[in-house]
Design a binder for these strands. Structure first.
Lengths: 205, 205, 205, 205
DNA sequence: TATGAATGAGATTTCATTCAT
DNA sequence: AATGAATGAAATCTCATTCAT
């Protein structure tokens, strides 16, 4: 419509990606608006044309960050509908492993968000919604497994929470000590342990 | 005996506890040394008599924090040596639940430490040692379970990681959304799911 | 040409001159960065855009101060090459007198630099180079006097040191007690006393 | 009188000497009352029993410092009354050299006092009196030289100022750059140059 | 006398934010 | 739209001085 295409969205994205890089390296507090501007190849003033202030940039980052995550989960669920549920969970775990490997540098950002969630209502609410969706998607999967007779008739909600917790906890432990275990193998072993408890008890050998 | 007893240790403790209260409420960054001084009922200057600077206070807090945790775990393990291992894990989970309930306000501090671990070698190393001990204690428990025939001959290390991850992940999910699930019940259900997979497969009905 | 010309050099100069005024009045220690900012008509923050910290400002001042001095000496030597050497020394002394009169307020700054030289290598080295040049220029003058037969064949180096010391010492005594002697007259008398000893001994009346 | 001898003077001296050591090393500003207390082997509080505050300690030091100097000069003049005046000046110069060698570490203190003299009336007045006495003693010596026919009938005051300036200036130059010249030899050469101009012009070869 | 823990005013320095260009 | 010089509020940290013991 406009003769010049709107560069506004492009700029916002450019700034957001610069912010991710800087925040991951230095943390929210130690990151200067100047650092982000430099990283984005813009001036400090330009940042304020696109984001009201540093906090607004952090919140925008939060949303971008976890929305991406959710998209990945959705895309995966969509793509693997037809597999056996246990198989889907295994594949999901593998994808989670792969994602984690490439996102390890960004994990401090997540922890800062979790810490902020304790003090900032907006951030807390967003994260709550994110995890709600996450659990809901997992719960649906579990329910399908039960319906199909793959799993015992466990509490799907509680099992979804357990799986989500396992993922988050593994990511945390891995982040703190990358030497402690082989990430991909451990994630698979952990989920297998859980699946072992979910499978129906064989009636006879 | 001495005219003035050494108040040094007492003061350090007093300051540390004030710091916990303030850091939990405001976060490391937003907490002013003045806030901590006021909370401790001391002057700002007094803080610097006992801790070199704000960072030293944060590191002291880290150590205090996780050392306490470790003591609790050790005391528990010691006290419940004679129970069946599955029972011990269940009791441990219950204790973890109870501890968590009372520590919920301190969780942002943990997340800040995890975030810091990505950037500060001293903090990272301390947390690594903490989690190493944690995993080792759990692994010993699992091994005993296997020896006693309570559990299948699983990989004790990997199982310990799984349990530790479960605890951390549950704490995280609960912290972000306390409405999402009944904390104590969920922790117990989660560990039961895991135990189900650990138990020997009955040979016949 | 450029929309906004580079004000950087101008600002640095502006700050330096403000610093001279304030340091001379209050001394390095009692001078607040705020005082200097106010004197310069800038904000405190602006000072830090141009000088890393207070010490950097002091060092920049040192260099500015003594470099100016050296320029004056050089310009003088250049302008009076063709005079008789004794006459040049007399003229130099008069110029020194005149300069001193106008610089008397800045002398405490010099003394602070001399005190600092005992503790700060960078400052010491700079002053050493300054005085080396100063002595060298004087020594050349003396040598010329000897060559021309105006002076006895004295040790030019040692004589240069003597003259330099005389200047510094006179400035010191005058600074401490301005009532003690007529500055210009004293400087001239002192140098004449010295010149008297340098002149060749007349062979007969 | 008192059964216990008054330790008050002893303590004041002890503190003063500690202050000299610390001030010489660190300068007035960077020297902490704590440093001085430690150096004196006393507590910080004890300092305040003997000196009102840091400034009072500095002023006491000033007086001690220059009074000692003056005593040395007086003692010397007294001891060498009967020498030829030129010889006395030479001996004085040698003594000055020797003193300087041992006092070099204390020179930054002098420079700080000179800097302070520009801003503090009490310090300025004390230094003025010191230098007045110094010049007066030197002037008397010169006068005696003139009376005895050793020197030409120069202005004794102005000559005294010249000698005092020479001493101060040499000390300054030596302090800033100890490599620049052999201190004792230079002092002697300088005073010889001056004496050369003071001696009566020989009527014939 | 002597101590040294405690104070708190005040200094330097940082950096998010603004705004003239 | 974009810049980057300038601001100034606010934080950390220091240290001369006090005072209960």
């Amino acid at each position: 419509m406009s003769p010049r295409p709107d560069v506004s969205e492009e700029r916002k994205q450019q700034i957001l990606e610069a912010a991710i890089a800087v925040f991951a390296r230095l943390g929210f507090h130690a990151s200067r608006m100047d650092d982000i501007a430099t990283q984005a190849g813009l001036s400090k003033g330009a940042l304020y044309l696109y984001y009201k202030n540093k906090d607004a940039l952090i919140v925008a980052l939060l949303k971008y960050f976890f929305t991406q995550e959710m998209k990945h989960l959705r895309a995966f669920v969509e793509a693997n509908r037809d597999e056996a549920v246990a198989e889907q969970l295994l594949l999901l775990t593998r994808q989670f492993s792969a994602t984690m490997q490439s996102m390890i540098d960004l994990m401090p950002i997540s922890f800062e968000f979790y810490a902020l969630a304790g003090r900032d209502g907006e951030i807390r609410q967003f994260l709550q919604e994110y995890f709600q969706e996450y659990r809901r998607d997992l719960a649906r999967l579990i329910e399908r497994g039960i319906e199909r007779g793959e799993f015992q008739p466990v509490d799907a909600q509680a099992t979804a929470v357990t799986i989500a917790a396992l993922y988050e906890g593994l990511a945390l432990l891995h982040f703190v000590d990358m030497q402690a275990f082989q990430w991909a193998a451990q994630a698979e072993t952990s989920i297998q342990l859980l699946l072992a408890g979910l499978r129906p008890i064989p009636l006879h050998k």
